[in-house]
Nucleic acid binder design. Sequence first.
DNA 1: CACCTGTATCGAACCGGTTCGACTCGACGC
DNA 2: GCGTCGAGTCGAACCGGTTCGATACAGGTG
Lengths: 342, 342
Amino acid sequence: MVTIGDVARVAGVSRSTASYALSGKRTISPAVVQRVLDAVDELGYTPNAGARALATSQTKVIGLLGRFLSDEFAPAMLQYILGVTNRAGELGYDTLLVSEEDGVNALKRLSTSRMVDGFVLLNVAEHDDRLGFLREALQPGATVGLPEQCDGIDVFDLDFVASGRIMVDAMADAGHRELILVSQPEHVVARGGAYVWRLADGAQARADERGIELHRYFGASSQPAIGEDLNRYLDTHPGATGLLLNNEAAAAALPSVLAARGLSSPADISVLGRYSDDFARTFSLPFSAVDSAADELGRRAVEQLVARIEGDPAGAAPHLVELIPPTIHDRGSIAPPPASRG
Amino acid sequence: MVTIGDVARVAGVSRSTASYALSGKRTISPAVVQRVLDAVDELGYTPNAGARALATSQTKVIGLLGRFLSDEFAPAMLQYILGVTNRAGELGYDTLLVSEEDGVNALKRLSTSRMVDGFVLLNVAEHDDRLGFLREALQPGATVGLPEQCDGIDVFDLDFVASGRIMVDAMADAGHRELILVSQPEHVVARGGAYVWRLADGAQARADERGIELHRYFGASSQPAIGEDLNRYLDTHPGATGLLLNNEAAAAALPSVLAARGLSSPADISVLGRYSDDFARTFSLPFSAVDSAADELGRRAVEQLVARIEGDPAGAAPHLVELIPPTIHDRGSIAPPPASRG
DNA sequence: CACCTGTATCGAACCGGTTCGACTCGACGC
DNA sequence: GCGTCGAGTCGAACCGGTTCGATACAGGTG
């Protein structure tokens, strides 16, 4: 393998001069720099990552810790992952992906062995056992998902409270007065998926303000249970004219449920979901939805992480808690309720 | 940070003795080994990955190169990825995930900088530009996906020819005589997705053998186009009683297409797909399908890669081309055709 | 008792980079 | 004509592991 020593020899200079010529950290005469660059080209030199990491204590790798739960909509995770890896690549970092069950252990291993310069944690729960260690680690960390305690880390998440509000607003503005909100199953909440509450509470608060009747349910996370759930909700509340979905399985199941009931959207019922654009595209869901902005969240987390890695350790910037504002992707599934139409 | 020098000092031995005590590569007295282990515990020592990589030329990291195409069903990739990362973890390796557009460049970078011990390539096309470099790289490589030239690498893929055969067999055994096969769109084939042809050819050959009429189509890869395609195929071939799907979008769209036509499966039409179990579960697709075995393929690729990394470089084992046999996951969507029933 | 063998340990070198301090040399000022 | 300065370069040390060769010492053998 070709080392910087080989480059130096071919260029006729010392190893240190070759190093400085490449890094530019000291002034080296243009002629020598050119000879070194030529030698690099000629030999096809690439620095050895391990040696550089050892010398500089910088690996140019970030650790990405997922939490892949079989009862969640796993494929959606890919969007977050790609957001992270793509942005990291643009910033000159590679990404080590860890899917290991025991996230705390993985975190410790990568941290103490100095394999990475920082961490991005995905799918962070309200009380996440990985955070305790992360705060004490030598490397900085950023999360996608809002934990209860945010000190010492940079936090990124969708603003779920605002999401709940604008979902109710969108329906109320169209004239709806009675809505059904289908959330994720209760065990997602129990596991720390606080976003379920955050969205529901935001929706409830806004519904109260505007005098809207809101029926809240936890739906199942898979077929056929969720299909039955949806039918039951619709049977129970015949006066409801709008359906809010914070549950991917419900969104996927709804087209056939509506078809079976002989309903169509938005003519008979207005629908507004909360899922990623990618999810909608793949399954051609015809419903407007608050975008989960997976890609953007992943990108923002990496950007902030890299800023902290490369930033002045002395004047450490205060930690962020960034809740990105929700946007509705309009697919035309909201219209005034049937009764109000001429 | 705590180094092996610290451990040695606390244990009262030299650095080399501490190293041997931990690696077991030379005999060290039990008493000393214990003192070293105690020191490790006391200080919380973990070897520095960069230093170890430099000294041993082994990083214990494998590079995973995806190819994420926006017009393919991206979320399915996650199953392959998790198969790789999970199995790698079990074998003591971490995984560097690269999503970079320019796969060749990424491969070169990771290879020449010695960041990884080997590569797993996903979504490998028939003529994949990454393979040329991979063959010449210092590190071994395994692919998921069958290229035309397999020399110098280990190749894993689903046996698509056999898949085509058993799909036709399953229908023929149930008494069907006229089938429609909906494949991926033609541009997937053009890009090198040879599995489309492999499955179709296997199906055609078996259909010819058994005197079955097979109508072959390339369907669109998204709604609403694929829905219209499906309706057209069904209109064109009113005598067809069985539907074979090698197209995820078609599978996702079929339930609503059938509902709209007032058909149900398997009473009116038998359906057999080819997609992952995970895909079926997530979207509650009620159709039997040949499983794409993403998880298993990822795991097998890693196992073989690690065997090659750690294997005797002298007696290099011959390279594998492993096509794993298809299995049908029965979800009850195949029944005898209506006409044949009493 | 000299000799050999095997066990247990140590010191030094090495992996391939980066970085610090010192040195040379020419230009410049007085 | 001597001291100063800055540009350009070199040698050596260092990062934190692993590994080779040498050494010390114990026990067994003739």
